[in-house]
Design a protein around this nucleic acid. Structure first.
Lengths: 346, 346
DNA sequence: CTGTTAGCGCGTTCAT
DNA sequence: ATGAACGCGCTAACAG
């Protein structure tokens, strides 16, 4: 309600002095600044958003595109949107939600009208149309997730390949030898959601490096039973499972194994890797290499803010190193451990 | 990039003519309007958001406060946020996400700076602080959910009491006599989230009206087993269950009953009422009286837009009538049906 | 029916 | 270190 002019009058200074005293963009004598700040708090002054935007040619708003697919994990989605919003607020930005139907239209519009200073892109597919659009837009964008072609983009994500390697290493260290991977359902892969592919690639590659043979299965029917049956058929000696899948599937793993007479972690050890959900409530909580929404989102928002404010040009791809959380679902066996590779993966 | 002036020049008219031709707020001759529109599309003109906001004193932005509690159902939350956003876009509004930590601060700020034209309040508690704040703010707000004291507010929600009555009526019509309610976990009730209380109240009241005796249980451990055991202990002849609870509990009902030798719907019929999730993937899909996010959100956004644009003053409370979806989890018994009340609830 | 013009509230040069 | 004045792009009241 109170304008900058009211504050200036109250403090007995000029309008520009108020602006500078509050923004700190120019040196103001301590006493004057104090008077201005007192006046501002007294009048409960807050700059009119649109006026500030127009004058500064900056909206202090980031747009967030969060498409909702039929197979989208709403919980993960919400978590990422929230984390982006929190991270943005810490840097004095608000976030505008863009829904799928008009994800492209929304990006164009918020860029063309200067509604947003930047765009955060969530849930990125391998061949995401939003990547093509982002290259054309003058409005800076940061992707949380990594499309196949990252040229001209700025992308942040968990290092899924390192996470896969870390899961394998932990299981091998515990003496496990026959490892299976339960990946995401077909429908997620078909859409070319990219992170399951990157995880799987890292998994296969690191298994080859460590000289072990592995099996991969995609779950069906939103549960683990079929996938586990498939793994056991191909590797009857299966003694470890890596889960890079959704909560429904992961949550049914222990029951599915029990149904086949296998215990966790004794017969089969389990690691959940690159997942957003917690396994604490599972019958047996699983060791987890989390896909940490907070880490990815605050890194992404940080970059975007620096692009907007300082014109910085971050690298195309920033990979966040994985961390390992032990919850007791990996048990040591007496089997001879596989010899570590000469240069162990970090 | 192109300004209104560019369009005016291109079309050979004045600036204000362009403004009126595009906004339609004044009658413009068809030929002129066409010239203006051609020029606009040719130059790819979109009004600069902040300039429009400042001049019109309207941001075309709604703020959405969506607090995240420990027991929050992320999926439902996301659905509501998305539905609000979609509904808003249909009326040419964008939505700003306000996170919990600074829900109050965010509301104040977006109102005081004229960042938002209105506020949508989600996940309302019985004694929600945001209600108090909304009464003081000059910025209009619409609540999706109903606090205890609605004075001076505008609230929209499913008619939970009618939903409870509808569930009872359906079960009685099918010849069921001994009905139990599984409500939300304690932690949700403690927070005074209001809709479980309204549902329960409607349930008890309608049961009394129809002259039947009922039992109510609150689940624990994120599953139905304990609640069902409790219901059976209190009503050994239990032949129907109404679920007004979360997806984890609802999803385990069939298994819990099976563990006690009861089948669905033969021995025990089940209705899920006032829930956001789908039961289609459950072992036995349940008849559902949905808490329809789309209906609530578009009604709320519609009201908010009309308050902002036309200065309308909607009623304090708008209840959305429930609908019933049959999925086969209610089976008819041969028992003598309870006589319908003289004036059946709608 | 159309053009002219005065702000909207603020950030920021330019003088001082 | 401070103040005066201009302009951001648009809307709306006022003229014609």
């Amino acid at each position: 309600m109170a304008t900058i002019e009211d504050v200036a009058r109250e403090a007995g200074v000029s309008i520009s002095t108020v602006s500078y005293a509050l923004s700190g963009k120019r040196a103001i004598s301590a006493t004057t600044r104090q008077r201005v700040q007192d006046a501002a708090t007294k009048l409960n002054y807050l700059p009119h958003a649109s006026a500030r935007m127009l004058a500064a040619n900056r909206s202090h708003i980031f747009a967030v595109t969060a498409p909702l697919h039929p197979d989208t994990d709403h919980s993960a989605h919400m978590t990422f949107a929230m984390e982006v919003t929190k991270a943005a607020r810490e840097r004095d930005y608000d976030t505008l939600l863009l829904v799928h139907k008009d994800a492209l239209e929304g990006m164009k519009r918020s860029a063309a009208t200067s509604l947003a200073d930047g765009i955060i892109v969530l849930d990125v597919d391998a061949h995401d149309e939003r990547a093509t659009l982002a290259r054309q837009l003058s409005c800076p964008a940061v992707f949380i997730g990594i499309p196949e072609d990252t040229s001209g983009l700025v992308c942040v994500d968990l290092d899924f390949e390192a996470a896969a390697a870390m899961a394998i290493d932990r299981l091998l260290d515990a003496g496990r030898r026959s490892i299976g991977l339960i990946s995401h359902p077909e429908e997620t892969l078909v859409r070319e959601s990219n992170f399951p592919l990157r995880f799987r690639h890292g998994f296969e590659q690191h298994a080859a490096e460590r000289g072990i043979d592995i099996a991969v299965a995609n779950p069906t029917h939103h549960r683990a039973h079929e996938a586990i049956a498939e793994l056991l058929e191909r590797k009857p000696d299966l003694d470890a499972i890596v889960l890079n899948t959704n909560i429904d599937v992961a949550g049914s793993v222990t029951a599915a194994l029990a149904g086949l007479g296998r215990s966790v972690p004794g017969d089969v050890s389990v690691v959940a890797a690159g997942v957003t959900f917690s396994t604490l409530r599972f019958p047996v909580p699983f060791d987890t290499i989390p896909l940490d929404a907070h880490a990815s989102c605050s890194a992404a928002v940080d970059m975007l803010a620096r692009i907007v404010e300082n014109g910085e040009s971050p690298p195309e791809t920033t990979l966040i190193p994985p961390t390992y959380i032990e919850l007791g679902s990996v048990a040591r066996t007496s089997a001879t451990p596989v010899a570590p590779v000469t240069a162990p993966a970090t």
